Simulated scan of single mutants.
Amino acid sequence: MKTPWHVWVVGGVSLLWNSGGAIDYLMLRFRVEAYTGQLTEAQLGFFESLPVWASIGWALGVWGAWIGSVLLLLRSRFAGTAFALSLLGIGVNSIYTYGLAGAEVDAGMGAVQAWFAVAIVVITAGLLFYARAMARRGVLR
């Protein structure tokens, strides 16, 4: 089956989008001063105080989505699984971020960041549904 043009567009745009998340993750994890210097003390403190299970969720969310994008471009049927794992990771991290962290999040997150978090979930869910649809059509093997 010939690969539809939109697979390349969705795969390419999703890889760019998810690379942004991967860069953010690496910059924060490796504490790159040029990057972390732009954060407030409250924001930096939040990331440094994440419990291990929330950090694992964050990593799974970021890297699952990035790998899903690569797998989509490789036309692998496992792209959907990677996006599903990403959503699981986002959910785990969100339990801490929005359910347990409380005032720490309120101090470091404004309205823009809150809407951005919603956009991440919506886009990742969209990519999951897209990858599954392409797998059902036989585009992903």
Rank of each mutant, 00 (worst) to 15 (best):
R77K: 15
V105I: 11
V139T: 07
A59N: 15
R137D: 07
E41V: 12
G99M: 12
F129Y: 08
V70E: 05
G102V: 04
W8Y: 14
E48N: 15
W53P: 00
L88E: 03
S55H: 13
L85T: 04
W5H: 13
G126V: 13
R75D: 14
G68M: 08
L73N: 14
V118N: 06
V52N: 12
Q113W: 13
R137Y: 07
L71H: 06
L72T: 02
G20V: 00
N18E: 11
W63I: 15
G45F: 04
V122M: 04
T97H: 15
L73A: 12
I56R: 01
G20T: 01
A42W: 05
E104A: 07
A59H: 14
Y35S: 07
F116C: 02
T36E: 04
T36F: 11
F47W: 12
V92Y: 01
F78P: 00
R137C: 09
V10F: 04
A84K: 04
E41N: 15
N93E: 04
L87H: 00
R77I: 08
E48T: 14
G61L: 09
V13H: 03
L44A: 12
W115M: 14
G64V: 03
M109T: 15
P4V: 13
A84H: 06
L28I: 15
A82W: 01
W63C: 13
Y98Q: 11
S86G: 10
T124C: 04
D106F: 05
V7R: 10
N93S: 07
A42P: 04
S76H: 05
G89A: 09
V10T: 05
G68H: 06
T36Y: 08
H6Y: 10
F78D: 11
A101V: 11
K2A: 12
W53S: 02
G57W: 02
L39F: 13
R75V: 13
G61W: 02
V52W: 14
A42S: 11
